[in-house]
């Protein structure tokens, strides 16, 4: 276990079965798709996928399948007809925790390229309104292309966070799927190098704290806020949630996820977090066979 690459070595105290985790990092994660019943009957979508040689396996999450194909999923007829959205199985979790309902007003604060925003829309039967926001123009283009491909009508796209979001506390639910270091995607290559390592920002926790507090202020009293990342680092996860709990009257809600999970941490590297942080949910790639994730389900009191 000594040869765990940094920063993963510092997580081995809390990752369940760390040996198995490290061993699993050289395997590829299987691809998954969500099917989009707005565009065609489910039976037709499944039939076409079968015609195209895609082998599907159940996942236990509605609309999500593991999809084995010798062809790139993005080149399938089913893809260009808007019948499917290829995405990690774990990316369903924040949306399921958010639990949006038809007719509501929902904000996805960091929405591009739209995997979760379009899933939210689907759970709302394409009714109500989803505001899908992002900071980067280039990523907004991909987001808009996905909304069109899936045939969604209930979504409004906005660019940037601070200036253009509305005043007041209008939203029934807000999702903050924050920019993060992406450690849940890490794989180890043949030369022990980390694959999918992101370069750049070292100020992520500060950005994440800013986004989460801003998002909280936009939720209606009694409304729901979900914070999620695809990283393992507690400084980008529980520490961010702890910050919100100190700044605002927010409360964590329990949740029983449909995939194997571990409770949030209440301590990391000598720093203690609010004890309710154990209500956060952690998902490890070797346990769920998909990208590692973190989420917190928060209510505004």
């Amino acid at each position: 276990m000594e040869d765990a690459p940094s920063p993963l070595a510092s997580y081995l105290d809390f990752i369940p079965d760390p040996e198995e985790y490290l061993g699993s990092l050289t395997d590829f994660l299987p691809p998954y798709i969500r099917i989009n019943p707005i565009k065609a009957p489910v039976s037709r979508i499944l039939g076409l996928l079968q015609e195209e040689g895609v082998r599907l396996a159940d996942t236990g999450i509605s609309w999500f399948y593991q999809a084995a194909s010798s062809r790139v999923l993005g080149s399938l007829r089913a893809y260009h007809l808007g019948y499917i959205y290829p995405q990690a199985l774990s990316s369903a979790l924040p949306v399921l925790a958010l639990d949006p309902e038809p007719g509501e007003l929902v904000l996805d604060m960091c929405a591009a390229p739209g995997g979760k925003a379009t899933h939210i829309s689907q759970l709302m039967d394409d009714t109500g309104t989803v505001v899908a926001n992002d900071r980067k123009y280039r990523r907004i283009t991909a987001l808009t292309a996905n909304i069109k491909r899936l045939g969604i009508t209930n979504t409004v796209v906005t660019l940037n966070s601070r200036t253009i979001l509305p005043a007041g506390q209008p939203f029934d639910r807000v999702l903050v799927d924050a920019p993060c270091s992406g450690e849940g995607r890490y794989r180890i290559g043949p030369h022990r190098e980390i694959i999918h390592r992101k370069r750049g920002r070292t100020d992520l926790p500060a950005i994440q704290k800013g986004l989460l507090v801003k998002a909280f202020d936009l939720v209606k009293p009694g409304g729901m806020l979900v914070y999620s990342t695809c990283t393992i680092n507690p400084l980008e996860n529980e520490a961010v949630v702890h910050h919100l709990l100190q700044q605002r009257s927010a409360r964590l809600l329990p949740w029983t996820p449909p995939l194997e999970w571990s409770p949030g941490l209440t301590e990391f590297m000598g720093k203690e977090y609010d004890t309710s942080c154990r209500l956060c949910r952690r998902f490890y790639p070797h346990r769920i066979r998909s990208v590692g994730f973190f989420l917190a389900r928060i209510v505004k009191v």
Partner: peptide, 23 residues
């Protein structure tokens, strides 16, 4: 554009939007 009707759309008036709904 075709946009699903919803009272929440009132909000649009106070926001700068890139696009709304389906062309």
């Amino acid at each position: 554009y075709l946009v699903r009707e919803n009272p929440g759309l009132e909000l649009l008036k106070t926001m700068r939007i890139q696009n709304a709904g389906l062309p």
